[in-house]
């Protein structure tokens, strides 16, 4: 039967697999704006993993840094350098 502990580990494994797919999308896409959004979704998955690993200290700093500050800064840079990645 499923109990509390099983649920914790099930959530951890599924979240980690989801994070892999979003990392793949973030590296693969040619649109940099989409890459920023994918990477911040991936950060949310990591924040959940941190929470399940019993690290509330790190969740506090990690959510602020990688869901709040990184996307804003990267969107700023993308606005300056051009949105689409051009391959030669």
């Amino acid at each position: 039967m499923m109990d509390y502990v099983d649920l914790v580990f099930l959530m951890m494994g599924i979240t980690a697999v989801i994070s892999v797919s979003f990392t793949f999308l973030a590296v693969k896409t040619k649109d940099l704006m989409h890459a920023v959004i994918f990477s911040s979704v991936q950060s949310i998955a990591y924040a959940l993993v941190y929470f399940l690993l019993m690290a509330p200290d790190i969740v506090l700093v990690y959510v602020a840094v990688s869901v709040g500050i990184y996307p804003l800064i990267l969107i700023l840079v993308v606005k300056r350098v051009g949105r689409f990645e051009v391959t030669a």
């Binding site: 590296v27 940099l32 350098v81 990645e85």
Partner: peptide, 16 residues
């Protein structure tokens, strides 16, 4: 990847 911003995004995920 050849784009520097793409490298930067990948680097942040690598750190995490």
């Amino acid at each position: 990847k050849v784009n520097l911003v793409k490298k930067l995004i990948a680097l942040t995920i690598l750190q995490d």
